[in-house]
């Protein structure tokens, strides 16, 4: 065992050895660059605000407290946003999946006459669209502005995801199954629900996750279509919290310098706990579903 290992070592040329060492070093550095910012936010959220403020928190938490989580708990609007986002994500994703399958399945059937026409009609919208204002006016004419539906209906389908599903239906499900099902007297819908969809669980999982992450992270749709505070999603509140110093500068009058400093520190660490609380649902399921995401990219890479 040992001899084969050293044999391999001898085979590797001098320049290859340098390459391997440099490569390993680059990768360890990259690992640090990718992981540290996330790690820092996590430890800062558990650390004493004062220590974070002084720059003493670098690799490990200092003076562990839950102060910033307590402060976040009292920040009511973010929880309204949380509830709204859960609603938009769940309802939106279910709606997306239904519409996506309704488009992908007929387009995957070679005996469907207007298949080429509809495919062209859908794909054209990937390259050209009406733009912000014309779309806004359509949504507004339908009376959807400032309703929950504005977060769901205008984003009903992503053509890219639809093509991924269609490719899967066409390439991974043997057409002989359809002949068999037809002989047994099943119609298209029965065949789709009883045979195609159960066989397509991996791709449906990938697409569901794509859509769900999209809804969870969506900031733009709410910016354009919503203004009622009760309807706003998490990302909008996060933005107010992270990108503006509005709330830390509120009601500063009538406080002594120490309280102000304390308040500002808390509002600073509040940012860390807010990031953690809003990102944790996505990052927690991430390691388990990672392989599916990768699979989704591969399926999509098959030229349409």
């Amino acid at each position: 065992m040992k001899s084969t290992y050293s044999g391999k070592l001898i085979k590797r040329s001098y320049s290859d050895k340098i390459f391997d060492i440099v490569n390993t070093m680059i990768m360890i550095m990259l690992l640090f660059i990718f992981a540290w910012p996330l790690w820092f936010v996590l430890i800062a959220s558990f650390s004493d605000p004062n220590q974070v403020w002084l720059g003493n928190v670098v690799l490990w938490p200092k003076g562990i407290t839950l102060d910033s989580y307590k402060a976040l708990w009292e920040y009511k609007s973010i929880w309204t946003g949380y509830a709204n986002t859960i609603f938009y994500t769940v309802v939106g994703t279910v709606f997306n999946l239904i519409i996506t399958v309704c488009a992908a399945y007929p387009l995957s059937r070679k005996d469907f006459l207007p298949r080429k026409f509809f495919q062209w009609m859908f794909m054209f919208t990937m390259y050209f669209g009406g733009g912000l204002i014309p779309t806004y006016l359509v949504v507004s004419d339908l009376g959807l502005v400032n309703t929950r539906w504005a977060m769901i209906i205008p984003c009903a389908i992503s053509v890219y995801n639809m093509l991924v599903v269609r490719n899967y239906f066409m390439n991974s499900i043997p057409p002989s199954l359809q002949e068999a099902a037809t002989l047994d007297g099943a119609n298209s819908v029965q065949y789709l629900i009883k045979i195609v969809l159960p066989l397509s669980k991996p791709v449906m999982a990938v697409i569901a996750l794509y859509y769900a992450v999209g809804h969870w992270n969506d900031f733009y749709t709410a910016l354009v279509y919503l203004y009622d505070e009760k309807l706003l999603p998490l990302q909008t509140f996060l933005r107010d919290m992270l990108m503006s110093s509005k709330m830390s500068l509120n009601n500063l009058s009538g406080m002594d310098a120490e309280t102000i400093a304390r308040k500002m520190q808390i509002s600073q660490t509040l940012k860390y706990s807010a990031i953690i609380v809003s990102t944790v649902p996505v990052l927690c399921i991430y390691p388990f579903i990672q392989k599916y995401f990768v699979k989704g990219v591969m399926i999509g890479a098959v030229k349409g």
Binding site: L31, L38, W216, N217, Q235, L238, S278, T279, L283, Q290
Partner: peptide
């Protein structure tokens, strides 16, 4: 490295800008 490098992709733009 692979697993960690994919993670930032799922963080929202708002959080990225906050960071």
């Amino acid at each position: 490295v692979q697993m960690v490098s994919y993670a930032p992709f799922f963080i929202s733009t708002v959080v990225i800008c906050g960071m």
